[in-house]
């Protein structure tokens, strides 16, 4: 299911591969916890350099999808999935080197997880794990990632303070900086703004818009308007079903296939 040329927005004309190459292909994906399905028979593509929104009420299987993509089922005893998820042409289910897969996918959780170490070490952790030792190189990575996450100015004087002493909004940007330090091809954001004030949310949203040029983003959000502001295309999940996937604007202008989508987008149920 390769997208047609009409998917290409005028602003993205400088990225010729846009719309041509899907970075993630999901085919008949079913996720179960203890044989209880959390997501059933889902099929869609996520294109390179797009922000792919996923909206839907709590318990729809949004987080489960992200966990399957990152193969976190390995750490969730009850979790199993069938079907196919391809990342960059490789079936993640049969990938030998899951560490390499996870390094190419950055994840941001709903609640910021500042690791119990300094701001600097938080961002330097991933490069260090993959073998970067030189201080100058690490310094450069830390500054670049914190800058891209719009946090550098606020923390540049306390890089060696504990990350967990930052405010909630700062910690969430620290988490984003840490994810960026992996130099991922794909960034997964799971309801990142739940514990973040509106001003910081706006700053992070601006950051995401800029990041679109460099990587692909899956944005799970409980705020329908956030998906509208950011996502190129959006999927609507409802109780373990992917109701529809469409150009985001189409969802909001009523060009939907399903009445349920219209109802959710217009806030008639939740």
């Amino acid at each position: 299911m390769v997208s047609s040329a009409t998917d290409v927005r005028p602003t993205r004309s400088e990225a010729p591969e846009y719309g041509v190459r899907p970075l993630v292909r999901v085919r008949d994906l079913t996720i179960r916890y203890d044989d209880e399905p959390a997501l059933a028979n889902v099929t869609f593509d996520i294109h390179e350099h797009e922000i792919f929104g996923i909206i839907g009420p709590a318990g729809s299987g949004k987080t489960s999808f992200l966990r399957a993509l990152n193969r976190m089922d390995e750490f969730t005893p009850a979790m199993e999935f069938d079907g196919r998820i391809e990342f960059d042409g490789h079936d993640v289910r049969h990938m030998r080197n899951l560490y390499a897969l996870r390094r190419r996918i950055g994840v941001v959780f709903p609640l910021p997880v500042g690791l119990p170490m300094t701001v600097y070490d938080n961002v330097a952790l991933s490069p260090r794990l993959s073998g970067v030792r030189k201080k100058a190189e690490l310094d450069e990575i830390v500054e670049r990632c914190l800058t891209r996450a719009a946090l550098w100015d606020e923390v540049k004087d306390r890089l060696h303070a504990l990350g967990s002493l930052l405010s909630g909004g700062q910690q969430q940007r620290l988490t984003i900086a840490r994810a960026l330090s992996q130099e991922p091809d794909l960034l997964l954001l799971d309801e990142f703004s739940i514990a973040v004030d509106p001003v910081t949310t706006m700053r992070i949203e601006d950051v995401l818009k800029e990041l679109r040029d460099e990587l692909t983003i899956v944005l799970v959000t409980n705020l329908v308007q956030q998906a509208r502001r950011l996502a190129d295309r959006t999927a609507f999940f409802l109780m373990g079903e992917c109701v529809e996937v469409a150009e985001t604007e189409a969802l909001f202008t009523g060009e939907v296939r399903e009445q349920r989508t219209r109802d959710y987008v217009e806030g008639r149920f939740g």
Partner: peptide, 16 residues
């Protein structure tokens, strides 16, 4: 547990 998951998610092995 969130600390472990954050670490695993960036591709760290269990030992790392």
């Amino acid at each position: 547990q969130a600390f472990r998951e954050a670490c695993w998610n960036m591709g760290a092995t269990r030992w790392q």
